[in-house]
Structures are given as C-alpha cells and as structure tokens.
Design a protein around this nucleic acid. Sequence first.
DNA 1: CTGAAAGCGCTTACAG
DNA 2: CTGAAAGCGCTTACAG
Lengths: 362, 362
Amino acid sequence: MRTRLKDVAAQLNLSPALVSGVLNNRPHIWASEDTRARILEAARALNYHPSAAAQALSKGKTDTVAFVYRRLSGAAYRLAYSGLVDALSAELQAAGYDLVVTNFATQEEVLDHLRKLGNSHGCDAVVLWGREEDTEEQGTLLESMNIPFLVKGRHELAHPAWHQIDFDHEWMVQRSIEHLASLGHQRLAYLGFCHDEGFVHALRRGFLNGHQAVLGTEPEPDLIGEFEDEISPNAETICRWLQMPAGQRPTAFVIGAGNKAWQALEASLAKIGAKLSDQVGGYAASGITSSPFSLIFGNAHVYQGIEIDNLARYVTPGLIHSLDQGSEHETIQRFRPSLEAANTLDMLNHGVLLSAKPGETP
Amino acid sequence: MRTRLKDVAAQLNLSPALVSGVLNNRPHIWASEDTRARILEAARALNYHPSAAAQALSKGKTDTVAFVYRRLSGAAYRLAYSGLVDALSAELQAAGYDLVVTNFATQEEVLDHLRKLGNSHGCDAVVLWGREEDTEEQGTLLESMNIPFLVKGRHELAHPAWHQIDFDHEWMVQRSIEHLASLGHQRLAYLGFCHDEGFVHALRRGFLNGHQAVLGTEPEPDLIGEFEDEISPNAETICRWLQMPAGQRPTAFVIGAGNKAWQALEASLAKIGAKLSDQVGGYAASGITSSPFSLIFGNAHVYQGIEIDNLARYVTPGLIHSLDQGSEHETIQRFRPSLEAANTLDMLNHGVLLSAKPGETP
DNA sequence: CTGAAAGCGCTTACAG
DNA sequence: CTGAAAGCGCTTACAG
C-alpha cells in the first residue's frame, strides 16, 4: 500500500490536519520548529506523496495546464512545434504544474474537447497554439467559459486583453533591413509567404514600414514576391529580378518565408555565378529561417528557427500570472530573437564550382 | 456551477448510482432502453462531464499516461522527438487516456519524478524515451514499483520482458544493402556514428550481417567509418576511399549516420565531379537520414526520418495492452519503415557545375 | 431492478 | 494551538 497522509500522521501521533497544514506550508498553522522538522522528515522517510486526485478534488484546483492544438499536417508545422512541448513542460514543471498534451485532427474536435475541459474542470489553464484562424474561435470559447488561457499568435487587434505571445515579426524584419543597409545595400527585394495568416502579414508590414524607416523610401512594389514554400516560384521571380538593369536590380533580399525561399535564392544566384555574402558589395540576404537551416554556398545573418524554445520559455510567467489572480501582467508579449550568422555548408570550398563567372549575366 | 452527476440524476428523478452505471456502461446494470436514452440525452443537454479528479480518486485509476524523459541538448535530439508527442497523445486520446509530458535536465530528477509518480499513483503507465543508458535505470525503477511502462529502445538482451519498441535497424540496413546490390554495386563502404548507443550498434551489426547475407562476403574493415555527426571527418575518409584504385574503391555507401554524413558524401563526390545516382553504374548511397532531409545534387533511396511518427503510433496498442491486464502481447516490437526516394534540390539543374569532369580523379 | 451508504485521500472551516 | 467533522464528486458493494 502506498503511504497516505494519515500514515505519516499516525506515525507521529499527530492529526492529519496538522500534517497537511505543515506539508502545504499553510499560514496560520502553528507547529513548533521541531514538529515541522519531524513531519517533513517522516514524510520523506515514508516516501509520502499526496494523491493528486484527492488534492484536486478537495481544492478544486488541478495543478494542470492543458496544451491543446489542432494537428497540422506537413513537416514544416511539425518542426515549428518542435521543442515547444519540451520547453513548456519543463517550465511548468518548475512552477508546480503538469502539462497535459492533447491534439486533434479537426477544429470541431478541439472545440469539443475545450468544452469538456471547461465543464469537468479538467485543468487550471489552457495553452492554445496554431493558426489564428483556429485559435481565434478556441480563445473565444475559453473566454466564455471563464477559463484562463494563453494563446500563441497575433490577436492584438481583435482581442487586446487576451494573454498572447508571439515573435515581434515587424521588429525582426526591420532589424534585417538595418543589417542589410549597414552593408551598403539600398535596393531590397522581399520574399514572403502568400498565406493569410497573422505572422505573414506582420512580416510584410515589417518590410514596408522598415524600408521606410531605415532607407527613407517606399519599397518598389515589383520587388515584393510572395509564394508557397516551394523552390520554383521563388526562383522564377528571383531570376527575373537578377536580370533587371544594374540600377534597378536588387542587391539584397529580405526573407520572410521558409527554407525553400533561401534555396531558391542560392540556386538563382548560382546561375549568375554569385553567392550570398556578408561582405560589402556582394549579394546579401537576411530574414527568418526554419530549423534546421543551413546555407549551401554563401553566408548570411538570419534568425535561426530554434528560437521557438525561447518563445515557449516566455510563455510560462504570463501563464502563471493569469492563473494566480487577475494580476496585472502585460497581456501582449512579443519576443525579439537575435540575428545570427547562419550555418553554411560552404560547398564552394568543397570542389563545387559555379557555371557562370561572377558578375556575368546569364 | 458546473453540472454534477447528481444534477442530471435529479433532473430525471433517478439515483446517481443508476446514472453513473448507465453513463459508464457498466454491466449488470439494468435500465430500460428508454431510461438509458433519457440519461444520455440529459447528460448531453446539461453538458455533463464527470470530474476526472473524482473518478480517479474513487476508481483508483487516473486514465493518464506519463511521458517522461531526460532533456537532451542539441537540435538533432529535439528533431528526433519531433512529432512524437503529437502522435503519442493523439493515439492515447483516442484510447481514452491523457498524456502528461514531463522532462528534466538530469537523470536524478527523472528518477525522483518516477518515484513520486509511483508513490502518488499519478498515472496508470509511463512511456520512457531516450538513450538506453538512461532508460535502463528508469525502467528498472518502474519495474520495482510495479508500474506498467513502455520504453523506446533496444533492451532485448538485458530485459526481454520489457515492453519496448524501436526501429528494426538491422533489417533496415540490410534492405539498403539489397537495394544497392540490385543496382549492381559490390564494394560498399559504411558511414556510421561512433557513439556507444543501442541503435548505433544495431546499425553496424546490420551492415556486417547484411553484407554477408546479401553479398556473401565480409565487408572490408577499411571501408567502415564511424564519426560524430560532422562534415569534416566524414569527408576526409570518403575522399580517401575515392582515391583508392578502381578495383578497391567503393562505389556505394551505406549510411547509418546523420545528415552531415550525407553532406560530406555529396561534397566529396563533387570534388571528383560526381554525384549520387539511382542509376546502374553511378555512385550510390542508401540508409538513414534525419528529418528534414534533402540531397543537394544527386538522388538516393533512403529512410526519411519522419517515420518516427509511425513508431509512435506503434507504441499505443502495446501500451494499452500492458495496462489492461497481464495480457499476452508481444513485448518486443521492431518497426520497419520503407525505403523511399529522397528529396533533392537537384542543384546541378539550377546552374551549378562541378569543378572536375565526371570520372576524373582529383 | 433500485436506492441509501460508505469510501477514495485530501483540505478546510469550526468548535474545543 | 489542536482535533473531530464535513465535504469535494464520483463509484461500488450491499441491503431492500
């Protein structure tokens, strides 16, 4: 039989109530230092651990946080979540909470499950992760059931009071532009996604505003490309850009898209015998990547996707706050990762040669 | 106030006991079809969901599975776990269990937590994931506490009775050899890891046995290389191999290592103007990869790392069995993924040229 | 077939 | 300062 509260109480000839009070460090409980010590010692010796179920039932608090999301297909999404559960559960563990992970194929199932969580008091709070399209509705449901929650994403416009966290995409892109400008680049092109999602718009907004703020001009509309995460469409557009006359041709690229955009960029540059470079005078690029990322030929300063861990680490304090009380804690948090030199395979130093001489037009 | 069992009982003028029995589909409970229907309907209408805490307390079963592991640093390990929690929690959810995820920095913390789980009856079963070095001790502890568990890894020798799951590494490597042999290759080199871990040894064993089984000869000891997951050491060895006289030079490569070994291979081949090919007569390779994987220049048939999801999906039935009773279920499960054409960036069709003519010695 | 009662293990007012 | 008691919400023998 496992050790019960009454077992340790009996062994010390104390009442369970007192033992419970001391073990939980409840205020207004009197016990001599000696008694406290004996209680702690006995609990340890008997390997006593309170039953989570019993505590949850009597306290009306489960000490549990539910991580609920809709499964998204595709390796890209999976990788975007990678490390998230790792960091989240570790942080919550340290704060005394268990992380329960549940995911479903459809939004309907997610909503049903949230409804169930609400009605069975299955957790103290919920973490929502996914596309705004989904989390919007999920958050609204939780709000109506009065369950604390934190959502990953950009709901600042529609729901400024929601506890929400995300990267500071606008800031990140502006930093990339500053970096490229510092290398002497004036004509920047933008490669982004074409999806109708919060972060996609934020990245684009970052490019438009950053261009104005850093270079003092509007970006050229022709130099903005937005595609799915595939090589061909990106490459086609880049090649077209590279064939523009010298005065109009972009010399640097801001990437607000996935690794395929980077690959398209390197392949397109290879066609004219060029590679990405961190040096003044070359072709340069900067922006986001997904993990793991590696350039094939050149160099660049980028945001390495692994930062998602840091994002997750940012989550917990806000979550705990929202649990404790209606404490005043910043509801909207935006994380700013740092620009770093990208990994590179540096294939040009491994016997690979480009077909055209640098500078030559294809 | 949330809906309680007695609320739905009261609304129907029935006893909670009856309602509970019907809702849980307990045998030996008599209720007319009509009554059953009314109970189900009322529960639905009132949005009744039983309190998990109360059920756990009275039934002595938590309907919860704990996923416990030691955090390993490095993107490689993170990616290896990617998708795992996804699949695991989805499968368990479907079987009526919640997945609680906990991870710790050190083995000591993991063991402490397992001890706590055991003594507080915090879960019905545990899933262990990680290196055998760690899981060996963890499993032994759980065994001593009589908690059902399932472990990822190769414990077949020391603990044949443990419920355990892993890839069938030996089989996988042998399939790779068969594939290469079918392309006409006779001289195979092996690139593996150098770590002292179960799967590393299994892969190597697979190469040795498979070589014998498929080609009828012992592999050349000189053609076996084992390194950390880095480009340089792999590349150095491969370049040395490629400089061997035609009759001794390997024409195909079995990879039992990470993506860096593949990159080293492609870079080394590039130096002699060659690329990996699926065609008879070229240089070929086959083996494991980590996700996401993409060749840069050539083609090959490989095991795409995404298969870890399938592994996770395999886990659940065994786990449920071990929970239900001491049912006779195969304890050792080995998963056999299928060899697939690898993604390739196909850079040679994007304006990239190799420095040496094919066939030319560097 | 039905319903009152005890019990799961803990917490928390509430009298002594 | 201490201890007996009720209660959290459900399940499960156990008498009617």
